[in-house]
Design a protein around this nucleic acid. Structure first.
Lengths: 190, 190, 190, 190
DNA sequence: CATGAATGAGACTTCATTCAT
DNA sequence: CATGAATGAAGTCTCATTCAT
C-alpha cells in the first residue's frame, strides 16, 4: 500500500480522534470518519485495510508519539529528581491537554479492535523510564519494586487524579501539578 | 402463573459479566447474553427494557456492592492507619480477584451506554473514605489535598499497578500487596 | 370450545374495538387486548384460537349486528319511501355514533387477517335491502341498476359524506341528515 | 461514483404498491420490498429513512398524481355538465384501472403509519372541484350542500359502486359507467 | 380454567466492505 | 485513484403463541 497522499492518513487519524472523543469508540463508523475527514468512504480503504487498522495504526502512532514526547526534556546529565520531574510534567500536561488522545487510548485499551502488536507495543515506551528508575534505585531514593509495577502505579495514579479533577470541572492550577508530583514522588521514595 | 423469577436477573447479569470479560463490551450481543444465561433472547426483555438497561443496572449494582464491601472491615474505633489498611486490602484483593467486575466497570466507564445516573452514582461510595481522609488530615498524617483527587489517585494507582501485575503473569504475593500499600501510604503521607 | 364465561368474549371484543380505534389494526397486540379486557393474555386463547380469530369473529358479529339493526324499523306494510328512510336513518346514525365499529370494519376490509368466510358474509346482510330495492324498481321509482351496485354506491356515499363531516369537526345536525338522504334518494330515483 | 439512481425510488414505490395489493399494508416488510424492487434491503435506506417514509412519500405522490390526473380534461370554457362528466370519467376509470393505487391509499387512510402532513394533504386536490361545484350551485343545478360533504359523498359512492362491481367479477361496461354517472348527477342535482 | 412469564422467529435498521462510475 | 451508492449479514427489539404454576 503506497498511497499518493499521505496527508489523508493524518486527516483520517484526526477525524477518528475527534469522533471518538465525541461519540465513543462504539459510536465510530466508517462513513462518519469519511465525512469528518472530508474523504470518500471508499477512499479510506486505499489507506487502511479495515476499520480495525485505522484504530490500531492511530493507537500505535499515539503511543509512539507519547513515548517520545515524554522524554523531550530528559537529560542524562541531570539528576534523577530533575529527570523524573521533567517526565512527570509532560505526562501530566499531556494527559490533561491532549485528553482526546488519552481518551482514545483508554477506549482502545479494553476494546476488541486492538491487535496483538498494539498491545505488545506498550513496553517499548518504558525503556528510558526503566533506566531512570534503576538509577533511582541505585541512588537508594526509589523503592525496590519492579519497575513495571511502579510505572503502572504512577501512570494510573496520575490518570485517576486527572479523571477526578476533570469531573469537578476545576481549572488546572500549579497547585494541582505540585500536589500530583508530591504524591508520585513520595510514593516511590524509599 | 409462573412468577417473575428474580434469579434470572442474576443469571443475565452474570452472563453479561463473563461475556464482557471474554469479548469486550463492544462484542456483547443480546443473543449471546441469552445463550450464556440460558434464557430465551426475548425473555431478557421481561426483565430489562434494553441492552443499555442491562449494562447500567449491572454497573450500578456492582458499584454499590463494591462500595459496601470495601468498608466491611472498617471500624470507627480503630486508628486511621488500621482503617486505611483495612480498606486498601479489600480494594486490592477485589481488584485482583474480581477482575471481571472491575474490567466490566472499566469498559463501561468510557462507553456510550452509560446513563447519567450511573455516572453520578460514583460519588456516593466515597463518603466514609472521605471521612477517613479528613481524619488523617486532622491527625496531620495525610497531605492537604482535595479528597476526591486523593481517592482518584489512589484507586488509579492500585489499578495501574494490578494491570501491570496481570500483564506479567506473575502470581500475586504478599510482597506485592505490601509494596502497593507502601506506595499508597507514602504517597498520601504528609 | 365451550368456555365458561361468555362475558369474557364480550370484554375481549370491546377491548379490541377500542384499541383499534385508538392505535389502528396494525398496532393491535394480544397483550394490549388482554390488558384492556382485564383478562390474562393466555386466557384469550381459551376463547379464541388466535388473534386472527378474534378479529374475524368480531368482524362477523358486527356485520350481523349492523345487518339486524338496520332493519329494526323496517315494516313490510309501509311504503318504499318510508322503509328506505327508516333504513337510511339507522345506517346514518350508526355510521356516525358507532364510529369505532365502522372504523374497525374498514380497517379489516383490506387486512390480511380477514378470512374467506368473513369476506363472503357481506352479502347476507343485504337480503331485505335487495327486496326493498326490487320493490322500488317495480314501482318505477328506482333506477334499473344492479342492486349490489346500488347498495355499494349508497353505503359508500354515506360513509364518504360522514368521513368529511367528521374531518370538519362540525356537529351533526338534522340538516346534515336531510342533505344526505336527499343525495341518496335523488341518486337512485328513476 | 455511482450516482444516486432516481429510478430506484420508483422501483421501490412500485414494489410497495404491488405488494400492498397482494398482501396488505400489514403484510408489507422491508425485505419483501427489497426483493420485489430488485434492490438490496439496505439500499432502500439510501432513498428512504424508514418504512414509514416509503409509505408516506408514496401516499403523497399518489395523492398529487390523482389530483392532477382528474383535471386533465377539465376546460374552464366548457359547461358545468361537461366538466363534471370529464372529471367523473377519469376518476371512475382510475378507480377501476389503477385499483392498486386506490387500494393502497385506502389501506393507508386508517393506518398508524400515515404522518400528519400526509393526512393534511387531502384538501389541496379539491380546489378546482370546489370551484366547479360552486359554479353548479350558481347555475342552480347543484344542491346547496357543503362542497366538502358533496365531494366525500360522490367519491365514496363511486368507490362503493366499484368495490361491489369488482366483487361480482363483472367486466366493466359503458353501461356501468353511465349508471354510476347517473347516480352521481341525480344525487347532486337540485 | 386463569395467568403472564417464556420463547424464538422475524421485523426494522445499521454499517463494514465492495464495486460501478 | 476517488467516490459514495449498493449490499446483506448481523444487531436490537417485538409479539403471537405456548407452558409452567
Amino acid at each position: 500500500m503506497k498511497p499518493r497522499d499521505p496527508q489523508k492518513i493524518d486527516r483520517i487519524h484526526q477525524a477518528t480522534l475527534s469522533l471518538v472523543l465525541e461519540i465513543g469508540l462504539a459510536g465510530l463508523t466508517m462513513s462518519k470518519i469519511g465525512k469528518a475527514a472530508k474523504v470518500g468512504m471508499g477512499t479510506i480503504y486505499t489507506y487502511f485495510a479495515s476499520k480495525e487498522e485505522i484504530i490500531n495504526s492511530l493507537y500505535q502512532s499515539l503511543k509512539r508519539k507519547h513515548a517520545e514526547e515524554i522524554y523531550v526534556n530528559f537529560d542524562e546529565t541531570q539528576s534523577f529528581l530533575a529527570n523524573f520531574r521533567a517526565i512527570f510534567d509532560i505526562f501530566f500536561q499531556n494527559c490533561y491537554h491532549q485528553a482526546a488522545e488519552y481518551f482514545f487510548l483508554e477506549q482502545c485499551r479494553a476494546s476488541p479492535f486492538l491487535s496483538l502488536d498494539s498491545i505488545v507495543l506498550e513496553e517499548a515506551a518504558f525503556a528510558r523510564m526503566n533506566a531512570l528508575l534503576d538509577e533511582g534505585k541505585a541512588e537508594k531514593v526509589v523503592k525496590n519494586i519492579d519497575n513495571t509495577l511502579l510505572i503502572g502505579y504512577l501512570m494510573g495514579g496520575v490518570q485517576g487524579f486527572l479523571t477526578q479533577l476533570r469531573r469537578t470541572d476545576a481549572e488546572l492550577t500549579q497547585a494541582h501539578i505540585d500536589a500530583a508530583l508530591a504524591l508520585c514522588l513520595d510514593a516511590i521514595k524509599r
